[in-house]
């Protein structure tokens, strides 16, 4: 489904600040795979997301979705296939527009944006039904401006919007990191349900070790722009946080350093 072939990306090439962001990344996701990504600060996790979504283009290497090379395409053209939830709850929604208008923009993914009415009666019914599934009462506030919602509500809406049209690939970039524990748990649960129901091929970056082990069917660990560990489902089921940290130290020769890391 998603195929990265020898993807490399350098930041500030030729300057004293030159930094390897990604080096020779090979990653292949089968349809329905749910892969969690962990790693220390500057390991290249976010760059990996950006290279897939098209915010950045790889210096060398290929990104393919369903066999089609998409790395030459700009971000807006790739988003036909890729849904994305950002870490910042403010990033995934338009604050000055209403909930139903935001959903209408998500609904238009992959379609031509013409002069048809963005929100009509039948779409509104659909939006209401889908919002109901979130279970946080947003279906009663269709006309409320998104800027008035709490961070957790906005992130739940972002998740619904990103998955609304069942994208081929779902990218979750630490999408629970900015929320308090209760809200983060709600979003995690919703993520699990939506991914399972829609059978979405998902790549999720997280700082939460316990979450990285509990969710998904595969876990990869990154360090200095490389994938240093790739744990399949069979091993992941019995993995503990202590083992995972031990593995990191053994391979990279240093402790997993991240000021925000959560052990679970």
């Amino acid at each position: 489904m998603l195929d990265l072939v020898q993807v490399s990306k350098l930041f500030n090439p030729g300057t004293p600040d030159e930094k390897i962001a990604l080096m020779n990344i090979r990653l292949k996701l089968e349809p329905g795979d749910f892969v969690t990504v962990i790693g220390s600060n500057g390991a290249g996790k976010s760059t990996l997301m950006n290279v897939i979504s098209g915010v950045m283009k790889p210096d060398i290497g290929e990104v393919r979705i369903g066999g089609q090379a998409i790395h030459p395409l700009p971000e807006h053209a790739r988003s036909r296939w890729i849904g994305r939830v950002f870490q910042d709850p403010m990033a995934g929604t338009a604050p000055a527009m209403s909930i139903e208008e935001n959903l209408a923009m998500a609904y238009a993914r992959g379609k031509k944006r013409g002069l048809g009415r963005g929100v009509n009666a039948s779409r509104r019914e659909l939006f209401r039904a889908r919002l109901q599934r979130l279970g946080i009462g947003l279906e009663a506030r269709l006309k409320a401006k998104v800027g008035l919602l709490s961070g957790g509500e906005r992130q739940a809406l972002s998740l619904l919007m990103a998955t609304f049209t069942q994208p081929q690939i779902l990218l979750l970039d630490e999408h629970t990191a900015a929320l308090d524990p209760a809200r983060a748990e709600l979003i995690t649960t919703l993520t699990e349900e939506i991914v399972r129901e829609m059978k979405l091929t998902t790549l999720m970056v997280t700082h939460n070790m316990e979450q990285a082990i509990r969710l998904g069917n595969r876990l990869i660990m990154m360090d200095k722009g490389r994938i240093i560990l790739d744990i399949p489902e069979s091993r992941k089921r019995t993995l503990t946080v202590a083992q995972l940290l031990g593995e990191f130290e053994r391979i990279s020769g240093q402790r997993l350093s991240d000021d925000r890391i959560v052990l679970g």
């Binding site: 979504s53 700009p74 988003s79 036909r80 950002f86 990033a91 923009m105 238009a108 944006r113």
Partner: peptide
């Protein structure tokens, strides 16, 4: 950034 991620140029 948001509307780009939903496919608008």
């Amino acid at each position: 950034r948001m509307i780009r991620s939903f496919g608008a140029n």
